[in-house]
Structures are given as C-alpha cells and as structure tokens.
Design a protein around this nucleic acid. Structure first.
Lengths: 201, 201
DNA sequence: CCCTGTTGTTACCAAACCGTGACTTTTGTT
DNA sequence: AACAAAAGTCACGGTTTGGTAACAACAGGG
C-alpha cells in the first residue's frame, strides 16, 4: 500500500490493481472526489473514504460518488483494519454468486436473471419498482447508498420525492419479511441512506 | 476473447465463432444495438450486453434486440463470470431436454419432437399458434421475453398487435390449467413481457 | 358453399402499481 | 426533558396495463 497525490494515485490504481483503496478527502488539493470519480470509470475496487470529524458533507458526497464505506478522523489502527476487513469481505462476495446468476443468503435467494425472489423457500412477488430497487441493492451489497443515488440509478435520473423511495423501501421490506422495526436486510443509516445486507448462513 | 470496435467485432464473431459475446452498448463509434442486430442475422451466439446506464430502458432494448442477458456497469469480476456461466448454461440447455426431446415438470410434460403436451397425465390439444408459443417458451424457460420478441420469434417477424399475443397467452394458460389469476406457468411481468417456468417436482 | 375451428380485433374493466402529502414515531443533540 | 430533523407510516387517488368477453375475419375440409 502507498500514498500519493491525485494523478499519481490514479496511475497507481491502474497499474497496481490494489485490493482496496484508502482515499483521504481532507487533503489540501481537495480534488479527492474527482479522483474517486476517475477511479470509478475503470475500476470497481473497494474505496474506503477518510473524512475529518464533523465533515458531514464530504462523507455524503463520498458515498454518492461511489465510495464503499467511510471512516472519520481521528481513528485507531484497529478501527481502520476492521473497516478494511469488512470492505474486503464484502467485495469478494465469496460464493455469494452461485453458478447461475443466483445470489443466496440465509432464508433469501435472489435470481437476478429470472427476476425471482425466494423468502424462506417461498416465492415473493415483487412489483417492477420493488424489483429494480432490490436488484440494485443486491448488486451493491453492504454499501451505503444515499437517496439521491437511488433516485438516479433505480428511478432513472428523474427527481423523485424521498417519500416515494421510502415507501418503496417499506413495501420491499414487508415482502422480504424484514422486520420493519430494526430491519436486518434493508438498513437505514440516518442522514446517509440505505444499505442492503445479505444474511449470513 | 478480445475487444474490438463495431465492424471489426462483427467480422471477429463471424470468423472466430466464439462461445459467448460481451457487447458494451456504451461504445463511442457505433450504436451497439445495430451491432447486435447484425450479429443476430447470422449467428445465435449468446450475447451478454453491458450497459452503463442503470435505467430500465436500455436494458429492455437490449433484450428486445436479442441479447441473452445484461449486466450493468460498474460490475465485479465475480458478477461477470456468474453471468457468463449462466448464459452459457442456458445456451446449452442442460438436461432439461431429456434423452428424448421431452421436457418434464410437476404435472406438465412437453414433447417437443412429437408436438404433444400432457397436463396432469392428460393430453391437451393445442392449436398451431398456441403450440408455437409454448414451444418457444419451453426453449427459453425462465427468461423474460418482451412482447416484441415474441412477435418476432413466434409470429415470424410480422408486427403483431399486443392484444393478439395476450389472447394467445390466455388460451394457452387455459389449456395448461394455469390459474389465470396468479399464473404459475406463464407469468406476466408488468411492462416487460412474459416468462415461462417449469413447475418443480 | 357452408360449417367448423382457429386467430385477430375492438372495447371495456378490474386491478395493480406507485406517487404524494399529511401525519406519527424515532433518534440524536442541546 | 425538550426539541428538531430524519425515518417511517397511512390512506387516497390517478394512471397504466394486463385480462376478459364478444365478435369478426379467415381458412380448410366436407
């Protein structure tokens, strides 16, 4: 691992193909988000964004731009390592993707190709928008997704009321039998967005 | 495997006869859908379409033009591999085709060679167009097929009123004893098309 | 030419779907 | 404890679309 400035960092990512990238948004040149954008154009390497304490803005911006997780300064070694491990574990998505295009977890399996979802062995009937939402979640498992990103990616760029998204999330949770109090599948992160977690076996 | 631009790609497909084609619709030089259309004029090679946009539109367009599956950028290696495996599996049509040309499921067996269908052990008499529809469904089990594709593939290229297709689906459902409310065999996917699923034993 | 079975068409309906805005609950902060 | 902001909930209604019925067109065989 190594540190570098903007353009150097980009070349490094391209040539070294690292397993994970730690990107400090608090650097002087402050083009950190541009770097992230560039990286995302050719790589989906997990990116862990570092922000200063209380800097809500860049945290959210980072996630919106495609970061996988964030960590606030000051942080301890152990915390950094923990975050890295988490990000790495998610990005490898072990045998999550079966031989077919089916993603399985405890009590939940999602067939991306056939558009079918099974909850505890029983098929759940999702509406189009519910399905779009779920499939986006599944393809970005474990990542916190801000509402604006969902609006863009799932509803196709249009401006969507946040309450519409909230409703869709609700209806999806119900069909997935996700306890709406303390949900385990579709989790909300106050001020940031939603994340989807595949239940471990 | 190799990458190429529009026309080069076409020649490659013709000369190399690959097992699978990955087609990026976001290429600059030429409309990817045209490439796909061209390929389909002389080859049935499985095509996996890559699209940058998360919106439903370009995906559906891809499928309508004859793609076998799609994948949205950015995607992980594991996802790409999974999709490729799935596409390849489907194209080989596993052991669903029994030793004879007979496909069996719970309470339903379809003899593709002899053009006969049995529902709960009793033979069902299908009209020609019903049969064409069913056999196409069976050969594309589990895939969602947009109405335009059905028009093209089943009715032979002509422009067919969607209501005609709907009627044929209806009559087919009736003969297969598929509950027209919440059908299990021929399923409708609002805004997308129909899919056929063989009932599991 | 008529009869019969098949297929396409039109018009209509019922239901699914989804967005919205008002309202309530939760959460975190002072 | 009080407050404000965020997340969640509810009920309503407009729009879409797939399903349905009845009928017309058509083809082939007797």
């Amino acid at each position: 691992m190594s540190t570098a400035q903007g353009s150097q960092g980009l070349q490094l990512v391209e040539s070294e193909a690292p397993d994970v990238v730690i990107l400090d948004l608090g650097l002087p040149d402050m083009d950190g988000l541009d770097v992230l954008r560039e990286v995302r154009r050719f790589s989906d390497v997990p990116v862990l964004v570092v922000t200063a304490k209380g800097d809500e803005v860049s945290r959210v911006k980072g996630l919106e731009t495609g970061a996988d997780d964030y960590i606030v300064k000051p942080f301890s070694h152990t915390e950094l390592l923990a975050r890295m491990r988490a990000v790495l574990r998610r990005s490898h998505l072990p045998q999550l993707w079966g031989d077919e295009g089916v993603v399985r977890g405890k009590g939940l399996s999602v067939d991306l190709a056939a558009r079918r979802v099974f909850v505890d062995g029983q098929e759940a009937e999702l509406t189009p928008s519910e399905w779009n939402l779920l499939s986006y979640f599944v393809r970005n498992e474990g990542r916190i997704i801000p509402l604006p990103v969902l609006a863009e990616k799932v509803w196709g760029s249009a401006y969507v009321e946040s309450s519409s998204i909230k409703m869709c999330v609700r209806r999806l949770r119900l069909k997935l039998r996700d306890n709406t109090k303390s949900p385990q599948l579709v989790r909300s992160h106050r001020g940031l967005g939603y994340s989807f977690v595949m239940p471990r076996w």
